[in-house]
Design a binder for these strands. Sequence first.
DNA 1: CAAATGTCCAACTCTCTGGTTGGAATCTTG
DNA 2: CAAGATTCCAACCAGAGAGTTGGACATTTG
Lengths: 194, 194
Amino acid sequence: MAWDTAKTKQLLLDAAVQEFAEHGPQGARVDRVAARAGANKERIYQYFGNKERLFAAVLEAELAKVAAAVPLSADQGADLGEYAGRVFDYHCAHPHFLRLLAWEGLQDGQVPVAAEDERTTHYADKVAALARAQASGAIGDDLDPAYLSYAVFALTTWWFSAPQIVRMLMAGVADDSTRSRREALVHMVRRLAG
Amino acid sequence: MAWDTAKTKQLLLDAAVQEFAEHGPQGARVDRVAARAGANKERIYQYFGNKERLFAAVLEAELAKVAAAVPLSADQGADLGEYAGRVFDYHCAHPHFLRLLAWEGLQDGQVPVAAEDERTTHYADKVAALARAQASGAIGDDLDPAYLSYAVFALTTWWFSAPQIVRMLMAGVADDSTRSRREALVHMVRRLAG
DNA sequence: CAAATGTCCAACTCTCTGGTTGGAATCTTG
DNA sequence: CAAGATTCCAACCAGAGAGTTGGACATTTG
């Protein structure tokens, strides 16, 4: 049988995504990643160098996915609430992504953020799209567009970042389904966008 | 000299707060906690049992502090924006607390949340205060008070939960000082409260 | 003061795990 | 098909770090 190194590498990366999302960069076990992928531990060091760089590779791969999955163009920015809803939907479907991001945020200040320049321009694009929507009058312009997008991301993702707090906070809510969370989110973002 | 075990225990707890905030439950090193406190590692096992229970003790201690520091009574709830501002100020002054909470949120689903019942009623009180403020007409009532407090916490804390993303998001903002963040936050919460 | 109890610490154990290695199997090339 | 390169893997290594222990010292109690 012919070698299929690309496939092995992909299997390892997928396994690593799961493992890192569950346990974080510290708790993740290289052996477990290899076992999940049905490959040998040594392959990881051959392909990715070490655990730290494997984590970086995982982050970059997932960032690319999410960037492609939920674009924000100028016209879509017109209904910011619905955009937030779509981001929310994405995270519901791929709950591991925000865990990876959360772990990245908690990393030691020493380790550089993965693909920082690329991501910075990516966010700049989003902010610029909001600025255009404001200029066109589609949404209110009393907030700096960067702060407005801050609000969108904060409101959209905090369900996933602090699930234990959300659970305690929502203990008394009659209907706290995913659907009603989404509705509340869309409602709140629309109001913020004015 | 008389033994001062209470002091040693407190020193260990303080050191553990720092260590866990910086490195998380996985990355924290028991030896380092002992060294920071100028005590012996064995004291930790004597007083707290093991690393996991030390982490729980750390969380409970800090939760008690924060609950006492930023109360939300019905009348204070009238200006929800200013309440959010005060919570923001607290976290600026004690940045380690939200890191602890973030790590708690990422824990394995297996380990029980520290002081869950107590915290649940604590949050229920806050939500009830908001509900009263809504009933009195001080703030708008088109949002479930639980979702409203979700928004307050999400907007107030995401700066700290995802600092790397905030940094990239704010790269193009002329004046992104703590002050302007606080102003934007108060403004956004006021608008949400209607 | 002497026994009992509690506090402290240096040194130890033992498991876990990131990373390596030597060699076997597989593929490519001439 | 032979030589060289590449992929694969089982076993190994070394260090780290959670948790323990044995005994020295301090304090209380009778």
